[in-house]
């Protein structure tokens, strides 16, 4: 059906009378669009703008000096390290979980799916706390770890564990609906042609899910690099050693070093924007593959 292209705030109708049947008056449309734009502007765009303006408050020179700081550099390195470990682990887990859940029918499947989603409903602080209770000096494992000189809390392993916990469901929950929608006929065809299990996965399943997989990895990575609460609890805030970028932001901010805090925040905001752009591109280009998972 033709669109009324002369109307920039158009509706999927084409004349005034029809508009009254299945669309709102022009006035109502403007009001609703206005409300929506105000809401997004106030709650999303302005905070984003604030990050960049605050970082540049004293000019680009100071901004760059802050970023050259060794502590900041160490925080960036740690953040990348954590993501490089946590994301592949959850990628492997996510593919395995999706394979088991989407391709087979077994008892307790719904329950398993709920368990996988569990970290979404746990406060990040609690996600950190559970590892303190598990590995802390008061715990069962604590004294044993100490006597063997194994440092988990207030060190990189603890940060990785907390991050893995928090980002646990991301890849799996993108893949499960996608693979469920695709069914098993492609795999059955490959098997009937003599392919082995791995060949089937590698040449048939993986190409079918690669964009959905990338999408999940993207979201998982954004969360892994940006996680604050859980990491904050287990890290011990040791400067230059166990500070990730979000923690560095907090420390600098609490020291009233606002420009530095916002400078580091800028990097994280850019990461978020890149994630959003890639996500939108994936959604645009491979909408049918990703549509399944957007429906949660």
């Amino acid at each position: 059906m033709a669109h009324d292209s002369s109307d920039p705030i158009g509706h999927h109708g084409n004349s005034e009378m029809v508009a009254s049947a299945t669309s709102e008056s022009r006035m109502a449309r403007y009001v609703l669009i206005g409300l929506a734009l105000c809401f997004v502007g106030l709650f999303v765009l302005m905070p984003l703008a604030a990050v960049f303006t605050e970082a540049m408050r004293n000019g680009a020179g100071e901004f760059l000096t802050v970023l050259g700081d060794p502590e900041t550099f160490a925080a960036i390195r740690l953040t990348l390290l954590v993501a490089v470990i946590a994301v592949p682990l959850n990628l492997v887990f996510g593919v395995a979980a999706a394979w088991a859940i989407a391709k087979f029918e077994f008892k307790g499947k719904a329950f398993l799916t709920t368990l996988i989603d569990l970290p979404f409903s746990v406060s990040p602080v609690i996600s950190g706390l559970v590892f303190i209770l598990l590995f802390g000096s008061h715990s069962l494992l604590g004294p044993w770890l100490q006597s063997h000189g194994i440092q988990i809390l207030f060190a990189v392993p603890g940060i990785v564990l907390a991050t893995v916990f928090v980002t646990f469901p991301f890849v799996a929950r993108e893949l499960i609906p996608l693979m469920q929608e695709q069914g098993t006929s492609d795999e059955e065809a490959a098997l009937s042609l003599g392919a082995s299990g791995w060949q089937t996965f590698w040449y048939v399943t993986l190409p079918n899910i690669k964009w959905g997989l990338l999408y999940g990895v993207l979201l998982c990575n954004a969360r892994a690099m940006g996680e604050f609460g859980a990491v904050s609890v287990v890290s011990g805030h040791i400067r230059g050693l166990t500070n990730t970028m979000p923690l560095q932001v907090e420390i600098l901010y609490n020291e009233y070093n606002f420009v530095a805090a916002f400078a580091v925040a800028t990097l994280l905001a850019l990461l978020a924007l890149v994630t959003l752009v890639l996500k939108s591109l994936l959604e645009m280009k491979f909408s049918e593959q990703i549509a399944a998972s957007r429906r949660h």
Binding site: P47, G226, F228, G229, P246, A265, L268, A272, L276, S280
Partner: peptide
């Protein structure tokens, strides 16, 4: 605007907090 709706998912919470 549609893409920006997901910003709170992607932006680290500490950054959102100070902003």
């Amino acid at each position: 605007i549609d893409a920006m709706v997901d910003l709170p998912f992607a932006l680290p919470t500490a950054v959102a907090g100070i902003a």
